[in-house]
Design a protein around this nucleic acid. Structure first.
Lengths: 248, 248
DNA sequence: TGACACTGTGTATCATAGATACAGTTTTTA
DNA sequence: TAAAAACTGTATCTATGATACACAGTGTCA
């Protein structure tokens, strides 16, 4: 159970810096095949089913042979993620920063819908691979022509990404408990039976949702960004043109 | 390892619907003491250290005695959360919906700072206890005098809550990898060495952050809400006053 | 060309954590 | 006072990650 965490080794594995071994018998598979097998297990049987034993069996190997490909389960998870996120989205089809971010959100949501276990596994302090890193890079490009600070652009990208993650149906986290999942009907019942203590939540439960929470949040978020961007543009137009708009 | 999930039993435990047992010897502790012991272990040794064995030892019991208090680890986690979140925040000190939500965010962030393991454990489809449920209830009250739909108010509350969770230092999730944690320096190094493929991320890495990402996101988010609220107020003022503002 | 080193694979084993079964003991209640 | 109910502890089971080590196949070098 002890954590087998070697971030440096993981980085070398993900970014293709592993020296290929030439001596000895050729391995029966390569890393891509191992990753695909793990992804297949997760897609069909859920993330909980992904064990060293199960993935090895999927390849026709014993558990221990799998340890020759990855140093441990953390490395297996890492190459799973990298294989599942796929290529970063193409945002060149639209023009404005807002529509670009909307397209980014749509593609991100679609990727997580293809592999519903992704939000659960892409959590915590970890080393990301080149494919996964490409996503925020593309999102940053959407804000390139914007008066936002570089740091603010990254914050904005994370804001959008986290929102999509948080509102993902299979990622029901925290306060979202009453919208989906098997615990939802129980929470509804508890709230209605304790309507005196939780009047606002209880009444909200009784009303069916019109628009999706994901759309509302994304709209709100982009409205907020637009507010800041318009304000910055106006200010930099009034004052003597400054190349980099900085807050006081 | 099989999931010991009985949401109904969990609900009865959390909401005080367990019939008190009178026959037989009196238990050495009550649920609150068990929860406090688990919280203490998590606070001092981390969430990973919280095992049935460890918590039982904290109470001076064996592992199996603990199973008389909770049906399994999921129930232990549930009462841990309920004990750690504490009482919901008091937002009566401020007036406007915006300052109320800001105060709510501040209090939520403080609670998670007191127990850094809370963001990691309050995840997934689950039944919440009355204390934890009180938090969104209070947040909803902040938006009571607002032209937002009831559903939109809940969405807004979740938006704020999720943002605080996502930007919590100990909750480093997904795209936030490069801001904190032990993997951060490795990611920085990888990005700088691959600056040709990730120019935007690489340059952003070189710049120290001025304002915190949590503040920026919260501001952006509240700006977006304010935009919608102002727009709604204006519309309902122009048209013949409608009691419940509804989108087209 | 042959010996050796290296590496893939399999069997056996360990450690840990959650969980069940069951006997022993204590205390309330009939 | 005796029986039933409930708390606690010992032993055991299962699943998973992980290590140790023997065996086999393959490339490299003398």
């Amino acid at each position: 159970m002890s954590a087998n965490e070697d971030p440096m080794a993981l980085a070398e594995l993900l970014w293709g810096l592993r020296k290929p071994r030439t001596r000895g018998p050729r391995p029966a598979f390569d890393l891509a095949q191992v990753a695909d097998a793990a992804v297949k297990v997760a897609d069909t049987e859920g993330l909980e089913a992904v064990s060293m034993h199960r993935v090895a069996a999927e390849l026709g190997l014993t558990k221990m042979a799998l340890y020759r490909y990855v140093n441990g389960k953390s490395e297996l998870s890492a190459i799973m993620i990298e294989a599942a996120v796929g290529t970063p989205p193409d945002l060149s089809g639209v023009t404005s920063w807002r529509t670009k971010l909307e397209e980014y959100a749509r593609q991100l949501s679609a990727a997580w819908r293809r592999h519903p276990w992704l939000p659960s596994i892409t959590v915590g302090d970890r080393v990301m691979g080149p494919c996964e890193t490409g996503w925020p890079e593309r999102a940053l490009s959407a804000l390139a022509d914007t008066p936002l600070t570089e740091r603010e652009r990254l914050d904005a990208v994370m804001l959008v990404s986290h929102h999509i993650r948080a509102t993902h149906p299979a990622a029901t986290q925290g306060t979202q408990t009453w919208t989906d999942g098997s615990a939802a009907p129980i929470m509804r019942d508890l709230l209605l039976r304790n309507a005196d203590r939780f009047p606002l939540l209880a009444t909200t439960m009784a009303i069916p949702s019109a628009t999706t929470t994901q759309e509302f949040g994304l709209h709100t978020l982009l409205d907020g960004l637009e507010h800041t961007i318009i304000q910055r543009t106006r200010n930099s137009g009034d004052e003597s043109a400054a190349s980099s708009p900085a807050p006081p």
